[in-house]
């Protein structure tokens, strides 16, 4: 995985709360056995009408959204299904971070494992970002700070090990495999064998 350290981009704002992963990528696109190329299905039913034509009134189809790598969304982003296809689709579409007041647990965990930064901010920062779409922001993972607007800045929480993996561009599987001796001991020592 490529290290993630700093993201600088304009924002695109999707103000709705409770955007679920069925919206991020509808289930009919989950019959794939690959994780590549899902960006074309991101927000498929919001971007396209029933006949497959792009809806010009949807923000991601408008020219100002082009090239934006940071999505600002309403509270509880990524709720619902555990499908990792959601962060895969967002990354492949070109997003590198999602900012919200609340990010659903499983989505957050999936996003971090793929290098999509979930950035949780307070209400005031969020309100400001919603009111200022297209603003340039800087997400500094090393210092866990979101810099925006006229020298405004706020910190955001990131689980420390996930942050380390992202900064170094390493994968948690290697760490788990390195615990083989502990796992073996655990399996042997278990006083209460399940089942």
């Amino acid at each position: 995985m490529q290290p993630v350290k700093m993201i600088r981009s304009k924002t695109v704002v999707l103000p709705f709360t409770d955007v679920d992963t069925d919206q991020i990528i509808p289930a009919r696109f989950l019959t794939t056995t690959s994780r590549e190329g899902l960006g074309k299905h991101a927000f498929a039913d919001w971007r396209c009408d029933a006949s497959g034509q792009l809806r010009s009134d949807f923000i991601l189809n408008q020219p100002q959204a082009r090239g934006c790598e940071v999505l600002v969304a309403g509270d509880n982003f990524g709720c619902g299904s555990s499908r990792e296809h959601a962060p895969w689709a967002l990354l492949d579409y070109g997003f590198r971070a999602v900012i919200s007041t609340g990010i659903a647990d499983i989505f957050r965990s999936n996003a971090l494992k793929n290098g999509l930064l979930p950035v949780e901010v307070d209400q005031d920062t969020h309100r400001w970002l919603l009111a200022n779409p297209g603003v340039e922001v800087e997400i500094d993972l090393q210092n866990t700070r979101l810099n925006y607007g006229d020298h405004q800045s706020t910190s955001f929480p990131v689980e420390s090990f996930a942050r380390y993996c992202l900064l170094e561009g390493i994968d948690a599987l290697g760490y788990l495999l390195g615990k083989a001796a502990d796992i073996e001991r655990f399996e042997k020592d278990r006083s209460c064998v399940p089942g």
Partner: peptide
């Protein structure tokens, strides 16, 4: 609890997950 596909791989390979206490 539900997990994503990367974690499915972790469990297949190690029978373990990295978790923070909820």
């Amino acid at each position: 609890f539900g997990i994503g596909t990367t974690e499915v791989g972790h469990v297949l390979a190690t029978q373990c997950l990295l978790q923070r206490r909820p």
